[in-house]
């Protein structure tokens, strides 16, 4: 039976879709069968980040409503043959997703794939709750910034209350993935540090993705950064995070930036 991982955050624009693509591709590269499911009905974007936007024929809603088979809707990645995408629909009807329907699709995926990554929409509404509903594990994508941390805290509360596992009295494994981390700004005390974020959220850390122009470049090209530029710092951080997700005990190294000459001269203190 495969593992279902929801990638969620509450806040929009923190990197859920980018992280879903990068982590999913990283796991698939090791030979595991991976399905990426876009739950953002009406505003799908995982297809675009994966470079599969012109190959979408059927989507999650078609499968749930029975107008397409799951095998017809799954798009196989052109670069990694064990990587598949199930796109969201572009119709505006959010009620098209039913809990029963989503449950059936997830069950089928779970029986065929080693990993099912559910890319959650932003917010805490129905779509986000359905994306997390059947998850075994959760990756909470957080920027080191007040509104993102607050929303992550809210999402952690929902994960502990509204998932099927939680309702059955089981644990859902939660991991924080800090994205867009700027070591220089953190060193100057201008950005929440990793310790701050972890202390506030009291949830284990999956990885730290440094702010990187290559992530935007990868999106532009329609390729997960772990496939297009695996030697880049952000890609390496995603590859490490994926190994931890698979259970490897790999210590997290906080990106370090030496204090600049000016900072030392002026005695600016780090937080």
């Amino acid at each position: 039976m495969g593992k279902v991982v929801v990638v969620t955050s509450g806040k929009g624009g923190v990197g859920k879709t980018t992280s879903t693509a990068a982590l999913g591709a990283a796991v698939a590269k090791t030979g595991k069968k991976v399905a990426l499911v876009d739950f953002d009905v009406g505003l799908r974007n995982l297809d675009l980040i994966m470079g599969a936007e012109r190959r979408v024929v059927f989507d999650l809603v078609n499968v749930i409503q029975g107008s397409a088979k799951l095998s017809q809707a799954l798009i196989r990645d052109k670069r990694v043959e064990t990587l598949f995408l199930l796109p969201a629909s572009q119709t505006r009807d959010k009620d098209a997703l039913t809990e029963e329907g989503v449950g059936e699709v997830i069950d089928k995926l779970r029986s065929v794939f080693d990993y099912v990554f559910c890319d959650s929409p932003a917010g805490i509404e129905r779509g986000a709750q359905l994306a997390m509903r059947f998850a075994d594990e959760a990756v909470i994508v957080t920027n080191p910034e007040v509104s993102s941390v607050r929303d992550s805290d809210r999402i952690i509360g929902l994960l502990d209350a509204r998932t099927l596992r939680a309702e059955q009295g089981e644990q859902i494994a939660k991991h924080v993935l800090v994205t867009r981390y700027d070591a220089a700004r953190a060193a100057r005390g201008e950005m929440l540090s990793i310790d701050d974020v972890l202390e506030i959220l009291s949830t284990p850390l999956l990885g730290i993705i440094p702010e990187s122009q290559d992530v935007l470049r990868a999106s532009n090209l329609g390729s997960p950064v772990t496939l297009s530029e695996p030697l880049n710092a952000a890609a390496k951080a995603y590859l490490d995070a994926a190994r931890r997700l698979e259970g490897e005990d790999l210590p997290v190294v906080v990106p370090f930036e030496r204090k600049g000459f000016l900072d030392r001269l002026l005695g600016r203190r780090a937080a």
Binding site: R188, G189, S193, D196, E199, L262, L266, A271
Partner: peptide
């Protein structure tokens, strides 16, 4: 230049 760091306030 010596502006107080804002991260502790955020925390």
């Amino acid at each position: 230049f010596k502006r107080r760091s804002s991260a502790p306030v955020a925390r």
